[in-house]
Simulated scan of single mutants.
Amino acid sequence: MTDIHAWPAMVKLLLIAVPCFICMVGVAINVYTTLSRDYHVVCDSITTSPYMEMLKVTWGTSTFKWRVLLMCAIGGLVIFPGRALRLGQLSPDELKAFPPNLRLRFLVALWLTAVGFIGAAAVTLVLELSKSN
């Protein structure tokens, strides 16, 4: 096995920066959705879910932080609707009527964030294991 610490500094920096950049692109997609007019489209698309309505009232929509968290919660509900549909917390008609381009945007953001996080964790693990040898 090659010694990671013998690699050039730029290669090590890229090894760490690329997964973080991928993760941040996923986060940026959610932030873009929050700051664009699509925010209101997303909020108006899910109205029968008592959980989402409670989040809208509890968190409010005045601060940026709560708006981003609300977008992430709605994205999770749209991407993984199984439990909410089984419990009757989400209408199947409302899920079908959700804009497909926004659903795709939430899915891409989820995958980029997950892949970037897993990549960063893997690089960190490899670097930590190489330190001990």
Rank of each mutant, 00 (worst) to 15 (best):
V42Y: 00
F64S: 15
V27Q: 13
C23D: 12
W111F: 10
G75W: 12
K12Y: 12
F98Q: 00
G119R: 08
T113C: 05
L87V: 12
A84P: 06
M52D: 00
V18W: 06
S62K: 10
V78D: 03
G88K: 13
A84M: 15
L90K: 04
A17V: 12
S45G: 03
V25T: 09
S49D: 05
A114W: 05
F98K: 01
W111E: 10
I22N: 07
V27E: 14
I79Q: 13
S36M: 07
L104R: 12
M71T: 06
L102T: 03
S49I: 05
L95R: 00
F98S: 00
P81K: 13
S36W: 08
A84G: 10
P81W: 13
A109Q: 02
V27T: 14
S91D: 09
L87C: 12
L55D: 00
L13A: 14
F64Y: 15
A97G: 02
S49R: 06
S49K: 05
D93I: 04
G82T: 13
P99W: 02
I46C: 00
D93R: 00
D93H: 01
T58M: 03
A17L: 15
V108D: 07
F117R: 02
R83N: 14
A17G: 11
R37E: 06
E94L: 02
C20Q: 15
L69N: 01
V27P: 14
R67Y: 12
P92V: 05
D38H: 06
M71E: 05
V25N: 09
V31E: 11
A17T: 13
M52I: 01
L13W: 13
H40K: 09
G75H: 11
G82D: 13
R86V: 12
G26A: 11
G75Q: 10
L85Q: 14
V57H: 01
T33D: 06
T61E: 11
R83W: 15
S45C: 02
S49Q: 07
C72N: 11
N30G: 06
V57Y: 00
W111L: 10
A28G: 15
P100Q: 14
T61D: 10
W59L: 04
L107Y: 09
K56M: 06
M54E: 09
L112T: 02
A73R: 14
T34S: 07
F21T: 11
R103A: 00
I22F: 10
R86Y: 14
